[in-house]
């Protein structure tokens, strides 16, 4: 009898923890945009504000989109006064943390653009988390290149 109760509680606990387990699809992503690209360019960048409104940390590892061959997470980096960027293979976002994907901070790098990005175009982008879950977003292409 006692054992049974304990088992039930364990089971409940297990169910409880599964329910609060963070899923990438629950991430709050706002204002995703990219900029129009010159025909000769084969890379693009996507920006947005991302907040992990779940109660657990998530780890972003990349993504996919029909507009480019590859999607990588990059972070702007300064080295000896020079500007560059680094490929981030995993970006951990703590519960409640906000991560700014914007010029000078993080960006989603689109590599191997299949067509130039045109102003007003909207394209889908799927952000991938380490646990296999995804967050699908829509990206609006801006003409203004700021």
């Amino acid at each position: 009898m006692r054992n049974r109760v304990r088992y039930s509680l364990l089971a409940l606990g297990l169910v409880g923890s599964t329910a609060t387990f963070a899923d990438c699809k629950d991430l709050d992503v706002k204002g995703a945009w990219s900029r129009a690209t010159a025909p000769v360019v084969n890379v693009g960048a996507v920006y947005f504000d991302l907040t992990n409104t779940t109660s657990q940390a998530v780890t972003l590892i990349g993504g996919s989109t029909p507009v480019s061959d590859t999607v990588e997470l990059h972070r702007r980096e300064m080295k000896n006064g020079m500007m560059g960027m680094r490929h981030m293979h995993a970006v951990k976002v703590a519960a409640g943390q906000k991560l700014e994907f914007q010029p000078g901070k993080y960006h989603v790098m689109l590599i191997g653009l299949k067509h130039p990005l045109k102003a007003e175009q909207v394209f889908p982008l799927s952000l991938q988390c380490a646990d296999g879950s995804q967050r699908k977003i829509e990206v609006l292409v801006h003409k203004i290149m700021q």
Partner: peptide, 13 residues
């Protein structure tokens, strides 16, 4: 810069 990216390599400037 680094080459561990699908771009091939990054430039710093």
């Amino acid at each position: 810069g680094e080459e561990n990216t699908a771009i091939g390599y990054v430039m710093y400037h």
